[in-house]
Write a protein that binds this DNA or RNA. Structure first.
Lengths: 146, 146
DNA sequence: CGCCTAGTTGAAAACGGATTTCAATTTAAA
DNA sequence: TTTAAATTGAAATCCGTTTTCAACTAGGCG
């Protein structure tokens, strides 16, 4: 999904929900799209503060929740106790490789794994709505430098 | 691993670490083994309080951390903001199916998925230390009752 | 046994990220 | 405009986790 497309999707969402379009929400969405994925609320807040001190943490927090409701962002947890947000892929799901040395996060997708997940779930009588797969280890830079 | 085996493993751990064997630690381990897996600190604390009011939350918390250090328990997070602990399987890893309606948690293991994970990680230059796979959906009872 | 020292305990305080409160402000419909 | 409803941000609150600290053991030693 292109950036302008995402912006109009958000505007539509605000309209249909009877919410208002504000300068802060626009700034936060722009910075969110510019900044790349896997930012914590704090990360995004600090980036915004540098450019525009008139934005509060609470607003960033609430706006990220709106993004998630609207479907343009997803909340993630990688075990460090902080929520992170990433821009939603339009249709396909992906999982994560996380380097436990440098913190680098790589996305991947493997339909063979997804199929096996459905199979296993079916064996246990579950119908799956969503899943989480995270692989923790050392990226190439970190494993060679040991 | 049998329960008495687990208990002696914990005693050994305490000895080798220069820690002391106390009544509280014994009670907590017994209740932990009796109670089944996926308990939060709070869960275990409440169960212990019913039988013996002279046990503090802090002690339960610290003892569960000892279990994890010692290798007889593992900490898990299933997205409800609470840490949960489960007794460690002696050698094999397992993953989880979680019912988003009733909260039921089922364990499973699939070596085909594990193999594919290693393959995908290798393609990205990662060497994997551990992983987390959770499938969220509706168990058979909950999906039929809709 | 009783002493002694290091480890342990539990109530309460501190912590840290997430969330809410509320008075002042802004949006946008009438 | 005027006005009602939504939004904002600083500060307060929430809630699970973790630490503090004075009182209390465990267990080694004489």
């Amino acid at each position: 999904m292109g950036k302008s497309n995402t912006k109009s999707k958000f505007k539509d969402f605000l309209l249909t929900q009877g919410l208002k379009s504000t300068n802060q929400r626009e700034l936060i969405l722009e910075e969110f799209l510019r900044a790349g994925s896997h930012l914590s609320t704090e990360d995004l807040y600090l980036r915004l503060r540098m450019k525009n001190p008139r934005i509060g943490y609470a607003t960033v927090h609430r706006t990220l929740k709106l993004f998630a409701e609207c479907g343009i962002a997803e909340q993630r947890h990688f075990g460090d106790g902080q929520a992170r947000y990433e821009a939603s892929a339009q249709d396909e799901h992906h999982d994560h490789l996380i380097c436990i040395s440098c913190g680098k996060i790589v996305e991947f997708e493997d339909s063979r794994i997804e199929e096996l997940q459905m199979e296993v779930a079916g064996e246990h009588g579950f119908s799956i709505e969503r899943h989480r797969l995270e692989l923790y280890g050392y990226c190439s830079s970190c494993s060679t430098s040991i």
